[in-house]
Amino acid sequence: MNDSARTQPGIFYGLVAITRRDLLLAWKRPGDVLNPLFFFAMVCTLFPLAVGPSAEQLTFSGPGVLWVAALLATLLSLNSMFMGDHEDGSLDQVLVSSQPLPLLALGKTLAHWITSGLPLVLISPLLAMTYHMPADVVGVLMLTLLLGTICLSLLGSIGAALTVGLHRGTALLSLLILPLAMPVLLLGANTVSLAADNEMYSTGMWALGAYAVAALSLAPYATAAALRISNE
């Protein structure tokens, strides 16, 4: 009686398998993970070079600069989300799999976040320090980036799925994702700024959290639909 249940893998089987595979691929080719990180660090370096090293100004604009840099770095890594799988044909295998496609899409997104969002969160204190950010504000920054990069990976997965296989993919992807990502940037950066001014910042944090939860429950369906449409 339980035979069918035993031979049929559970619904999270595919999610775990696809996440593990993508992480393994990323481990074998660390360049793909490191390049956006270097990009993040370099954008953060550009700003003081352009506007001058005054500590006052850097403290003031630090949250915004770090957030914009994180957004751009995430954008940079999005294009490759489904590209490799599309080129070698494994995306077709994913699409015909008996596992629910939204969960597989969530697995790809999770792997993307672990290889791009999480490293950004982890190195952000280092760059925040160069902007003279106090330690407690750095904690707020990391928390907003943690929630924010989850949102960005999820939003980005929709855009990446819509543009997979298109020739002008990269520029188009930025054009699609940036307006969608603007509220995330706005909430994230302003929450950090409020924290830096010793003001109440919980509203922005809650809003980011709500956004992340909503995106987590809705975006995989949109990504799955987009993948089916792009690969018809």
Partner: peptide, 10 residues
């Protein structure tokens, strides 16, 4: 279809 998905997300 692709642009419909984008419009709905938007």
């Amino acid at each position: 279809k692709a642009s419909a998905v984008l419009a709905l997300v938007g």
